Computed example of a mutant assay.
Amino acid sequence: MYRTVVITGASSGAGRAIAYEFALQKDNLVLASRNIDELEEVKAECESMGGTAICVYTDVTSYGDVINLASAAADFGGNIDIWINNAGVLAAGSFEDTPVEVLDQVIRTNLMGYIHGAHAVLPYFKSQGRGVLINNISIGGFLPVPYGVGYSASKFGLRGFSASLRAELVNFSGIHICDAYPAFLDTPGIQHAANYTGKSIRPAPPVYDPARLAIAIAELAAHPKSEVMVGSASILLRYAYAVFPALTSRITAKVISTYLNRAEPIEKIDGNIFNTVKYGNAVHGGWGVPGKPKAHRKYIAAGLLMLSAAGLMLLRKK
């Protein structure tokens, strides 16, 4: 029996990769995004892989749109088996240089969009007695990002929201709330980002193939658990901040500020914060080495050495 899977933000990047992964399993896909033209392309590709799909225009900041998405999914598949909250946006820039309406929109999209999704689908899950809600949160849920205050606020908020909801539903054994925390991904997300730094930006290495996240999410759907870290860098960064929060924050800020001082100047842009864009709608952003996780080991080794050295220095000062 094929499952009905809802994916928000399915028109590019991680969402598109996730759609392809479930299409290979011949599931019924409900593809949601503000970019309906790109969704139609994703639909055609998913159907060529063996899946069945519909496209539903959805702005996740609008609860009405999300309610409509849930209704369309139930009509399409009879039930809603899996709901994947994935749609998100990014704004880079110092806090005072980032317009407050942009910060508001980042939080409305990244945090309230996921809350809207959960609120819309839970009545269906409870009626069915089962369902899997998967939140694609990112390592940003554990690691604060300087020059991305709105993004960090939304991701830290998502972690608390999901943990609280999971505890509230502890007596509903058939309903699962799962969180995915990928490291930096090779997606077009940075290309789509609002950028008020005045400098060209790119994701920090190592970056991972979004297909790795898609496979991990498919595994979560089949075998639900509370959380999964995707990529060894995500594990390193999570525990680095847990053990050395001040040091990790200082290093992160220093790395970013040094990069911005040297980066190529560009005009400030709003990206896709308020409207869709016509560029960068593939799965990959062209930032990394997709499918070669061993290439990242040098970064992980360097990170471990750096943290070990920092830890020893702190111990000596005591």
Rank of each mutant, 00 (worst) to 15 (best):
R3N: 13
T4N: 01
S11I: 01
G13Q: 13
G13T: 11
G13D: 00
I18D: 10
E21S: 09
D27P: 06
N28T: 11
N35S: 10
D37Y: 14
L39T: 15
E41K: 15
A44P: 06
M49Y: 15
G50T: 14
A53R: 12
A53V: 14
C55P: 02
V56P: 01
V56L: 03
T61R: 12
G64Y: 14
A70T: 04
A72C: 12
G77H: 03
I80H: 05
D81G: 02
I82G: 00
W83G: 12
N85W: 08
A87T: 13
A91G: 07
G93P: 07
P99L: 11
P99F: 04
L103N: 09
L103C: 09
D104M: 08
R108W: 04
N110D: 05
L111D: 01
M112L: 15
G113Y: 08
Y114L: 03
P123K: 01
F125W: 10
Q128I: 03
G131V: 08
I134Y: 09
I134E: 01
I134C: 01
N136L: 11
I139Y: 04
G140P: 12
G140F: 03
G141T: 07
F142I: 05
L143W: 13
P144T: 14
G148N: 09
G148E: 09
G148K: 03
Y151W: 11
S152Q: 05
A153V: 15
A153Y: 08
F156V: 14
G157H: 02
R159K: 10
F161Q: 13
L165R: 12
A167L: 05
A167N: 07
E168A: 04
E168T: 00
F172V: 05
S173A: 10
S173E: 06
S173M: 08
G174E: 04
I175R: 00
Y181I: 14
P182H: 05
N195C: 12
T197Q: 01
K199E: 01
K199N: 00
A204W: 11
A204R: 11
P205H: 07
P205Y: 07
P205R: 06
P206C: 14
P206L: 03
D209G: 05
A214C: 15
A218C: 09
E219A: 06
A221S: 08
A221D: 03
V228M: 05
R238T: 11
Y239N: 09
A240L: 00
Y241W: 01
Y241H: 14
A246G: 12
L247H: 15
S249L: 14
R250F: 04
T252H: 10
I256S: 01
Y259L: 13
A263P: 00
I266D: 04
I266M: 05
K268V: 12
K268W: 09
I269E: 13
N272P: 04
N272T: 13
N275Y: 02
N275F: 01
V277W: 02
K278A: 13
Y279L: 09
V283Y: 04
G288E: 07
G288R: 08
P290N: 12
K292E: 13
P293N: 12
I300L: 13
I300S: 07
S308W: 15
A309W: 15
L315D: 09
L315Y: 08
